[in-house]
């Protein structure tokens, strides 16, 4: 009897080990689960007042998700970029630039572009969204073109773009403080049954779309091919340059959506600080989610969990009262630890 128990334990262990190394979402999911259980415990589960406990649990979660929606969307794009073997350091600056563009268009003051053109209200919002998304797409394409046609490494191109975009934005927005119409804020703050969850919905929709794109479309699969073996992909008829160009353009587009969410949440933007360090957070989420920096391997859902693990941990540290300066260190531990745990056994 006892030997059998031991055997089944061993089986469970080897099953667990195999799953852990072979199914990336398995390890990430478990890590996430542990985080959530910890968080639930910290919030103090109480049988007597389940209702109010659940209320505060839910509120806490909505807060976490909403606060991370923008960076979460950017992390998804970053995952695709890294899967091609590239990187985009310019996301924070692109966010500021497209955000500033949105605010200039919407400004209710004398310099608001759409206002000057006599466009206000709903039509102005629609035009703004279209133009801003287009601008993000163009900025991304510009980066993509420098990488594919100019043959400059992505790290260099986006490092340069990071400096250029922010600096230009700061210069032109000097002493100009556009006012975003209150109605525009509804885009992010519209309440569904008392909950402000619009950003979460946008994030969920985009996650679903990108998940589908990465799994089921020619473009999505070609991203993996390009990242894993560019030469072989080219010799298999994959238009490598087009795939890369489209990935960076998509990245720009996603950043502009994040910018719109941010502008409509707060109604303003700090052009010198907004989005700073965002590229690193996005990369961290992707890496925790199992994306390989070498390209060829990455998971959209993994990145969502990666983002959430980091977010829940921040929340926990907050609840525990860990000094703010130390929190970044925990983030660093999580990033390195996640990669250590996901490391495959040396193939024999």
């Amino acid at each position: 009897m006892e030997t059998e128990v031991v055997k089944s334990n061993k089986n469970f262990f080897s099953w667990f080990r195999a799953k852990w190394t072979d199914v990336p979402l398995f390890s990430i999911g478990i890590a996430f689960l542990i985080m959530v259980i910890l968080q639930t415990l910290v919030l103090g589960f109480d049988y007597d007042s389940v209702g109010s406990w659940f209320q505060s649990w839910l509120n806490n979660w909505i807060n976490i998700l909403r606060n991370n929606a923008g960076i979460g969307i950017i992390a998804l794009g970053m995952t695709l970029v890294i899967m091609t073997g590239g990187i985009d350091l310019a996301v924070g600056s692109t966010l500021v630039m497209t955000g500033a563009f949105a605010m200039i268009l919407l400004d209710t003051g004398t310099r608001g572009i759409l206002g000057i053109l006599g466009m206000t209200g709903f039509p102005a919002f629609v035009v703004t969204i279209i133009l801003v998304v287009l601008a993000g797409y163009l900025l991304g394409s510009l980066i993509g073109l420098s990488i594919t046609k100019g043959k400059v490494p992505p790290f260099i191109v986006t490092l340069g773009a990071m400096m250029i975009f922010r600096s230009v934005t700061q210069h032109f927005m000097q002493g100009y403080n556009p006012k975003v119409p209150m109605e525009f804020l509804q885009i992010a703050s519209f309440k569904i049954g008392n909950y402000m969850i619009m950003p979460i919905i946008y994030w969920a929709i985009i996650t679903y779309i990108l998940y589908f794109v990465s799994k089921r479309t020619t473009f999505g699969r070609q991203i993996i091919a390009v990242g894993s073996n560019e030469r072989a992909a080219k010799l298999s008829g994959v238009n490598v340059e087009k795939v890369k160009l489209r990935v960076y353009a998509l990245m720009g587009l996603l950043v502009s959506i994040a910018a719109l969410i941010q502008v409509s949440r707060i109604g303003s933007m700090d052009f010198s600080n907004a989005g700073r360090g965002m590229e690193m957070d996005a990369i961290a989420a992707a890496v925790v989610g199992g994306t390989s920096m070498m390209g060829g391997r990455g998971f959209i859902m993994g990145t969502v969990f990666g983002m959430l693990i980091i977010a829940v941990m921040n929340n926990l540290l907050n609840l525990f009262g860990v000094p703010p300066f130390l929190r970044e260190a925990f983030k660093g531990i999580i990033v390195i630890g996640a990669v250590l745990l996901q490391r495959k056994e040396k193939a024999s």
Partner: peptide
């Protein structure tokens, strides 16, 4: 030049 190691058999055969 021929195979893409991060993809499975079917994907390599269908790219």
């Amino acid at each position: 030049n021929g195979i893409i190691k991060d993809m499975n058999i079917f994907e390599n055969a269908s790219i």
